[in-house]
C-alpha cells in the first residue's frame, strides 16, 4: 500500500481471462504490474489480442480481473465491498473513448449527448449547461452544438465523444483505439485534441493504439505482449529496439526505421528519431554536412 499514493493508477499482478463461445477460457492478462502517474501521457501498444483493450476496461470496472489489485487514486477498486457510488466515482474519474464513433453517441443532438454523462451524475441543470458549453468549445465543436451526430464526420463525432467525457471532469482519459476507424484527417483532429487536453487540463492520458505514429507523441510507451508488460519506456527507448518490437508483432514508425536502416548502411546520423520532423532535421544535417565537407 505504501507505494499506491504516488501513482494515480497502479496495478499489481493483474490477471484476466474471458470465456470463448465453446467454454474455453482464454487468458488475456497474466500478471500486469504497472504504475501510471497523474498527468502522464502513456501509449499502450500491442498486436491484436495482446490484452490492451481488456487492460483498459479493467481500469474503470467495466470488466473485473480474475486476480490482482488495481488502485485508482489510492482506492483499491478490486476489493469485495466496493459500493456502487464508488464505482460511479471511478468511472467519472476515468473516462473512456471507444473505437467506433457511432456506437458511443446516445442522443440525437450533439449538446444533448455531451450532457448525457453529467446528467447521469445528477448535476444541476445550470451547471450541466455550463460544462457542456465549455467542453464543446474546448474540442472546437461549439458551432455544431445543435447538429445531429449522424451528419458529422468521423473525426467530429469522436471529438463530440471526447467532449462528452470532458463534461464529466475526469482525471484520466483512456482512448481505446479511438482513431482506428478514422481517416487521416479525423485521426489528426483526435490526436491534436488529445495533446490539447493534456496541455490545457493536465489530464492523464492512456492511448491504446496500434499506430506507431501516435505512440511517439506520448511520454511513455508500454508494450503489452501475451498478457504481460513486454517493454516500458520512452518512445525513443522503445523504438530504439526494432528487433525486440518485431518479436511482439509490432513495427517501428517508418521514419525511425528509415534512420535506423541508413545508420546501418553506414550513414553517420546522431541520435534516435521518432517523428517525421526530427527525421527530416537529422537527414538535412547529414546531407548538409556532406556537401560542406
Amino acid at each position: 500500500m505504501e507505494n499506491t499514493k504516488n501513482y494515480f493508477i497502479k496495478t499489481e499482478d493483474l490477471c484476466a481471462s474471458y470465456e470463448e463461445d465453446d467454454g474455453r477460457a482464454v487468458q488475456v492478462l497474466s500478471g500486469v504490474s504497472l504504475g501510471i502517474e497523474k498527468g502522464e501521457y502513456v501509449a499502450v501498444l500491442g498486436h491484436n489480442g495482446s490484452g490492451k483493450s481488456t487492460f483498459a476496461k479493467l481500469l474503470n470496472m467495466i470488466l473485473l480481473p480474475d486476480s490482482g489489485k488495481i488502485y485508482i487514486d489510492g482506492t483499491d477498486i478490486t476489493r469485495e465491498d466496493i459500493t456502487e457510488k464508488e464505482i460511479y466515482d471511478i468511472r467519472r474519474k476515468i473516462g473512456m473513448v471507444f473505437q467506433n464513433p457511432d456506437n458511443q453517441l446516445v442522443a440525437t443532438i450533439v449538446e444533448e449527448d455531451v450532457a448525457f454523462g453529467p446528467e447521469n451524475l445528477g448535476i444541476p441543470s445550470a451547471e450541466i449547461r455550463q460544462r457542456v458549453d465549455e467542453a464543446l468549445s474546448l474540442v472546437g465543436m461549439s458551432e455544431y452544438a445543435r447538429h445531429e451526430p449522424h451528419r458529422l464526420s468521423g473525426g467530429q463525432k469522436q471529438r463530440v465523444a471526447i467532449a462528452g467525457i470532458i463534461a464529466m471532469m475526469p482525471d484520466c482519459m483512456i482512448f481505446d483505439e479511438s482513431t482506428a476507424m478514422l481517416d487521416p484527417i479525423g485521426r489528426k483532429e483526435v490526436m491534436d485534441t488529445i495533446d490539447m487536453l493534456r496541455r490545457e487540463k493536465g489530464i492523464t492520458i492512456i492511448n491504446i493504439t496500434h499506430h506507431m505514429n501516435e505512440a511517439v507523441r506520448a511520454d511513455r510507451v508500454i508494450v503489452l505482449n501475451d498478457g504481460k508488460v513486454y517493454m516500458d519506456g520512452t518512445p525513443e527507448e522503445i523504438f530504439g529496439e526494432p528487433y525486440k518490437l518485431e518479436l511482439a508483432g509490432l513495427e517501428v514508425p517508418q521514419c525511425t526505421a528509415l534512420i535506423q536502416e541508413l545508420s546501418r548502411k553506414g550513414l553517420r546520423l546522431d541520435g534516435e528519431c521518432t517523428t517525421p520532423e526530427k527525421c527530416a532535421k537529422l537527414l538535412r544535417n547529414a546531407i548538409g554536412g556532406k556537401k560542406n565537407g
Partner: peptide, 26 residues
C-alpha cells in the same frame, strides 16, 4: 454488436437508469 458497444459506452458514462438523473434542458 452496436447495442453491446453502446451499452458499454453508456456504462462508462455512469448511466444507471433514471434514478438520480438530472436533465440539462428543463
Amino acid at each position: 454488436r452496436r447495442a453491446d458497444e453502446l451499452a458499454t459506452a453508456m456504462e462508462c458514462r455512469c448511466y444507471h437508469g433514471g434514478e438520480g438523473r438530472t436533465r440539462m434542458s428543463i
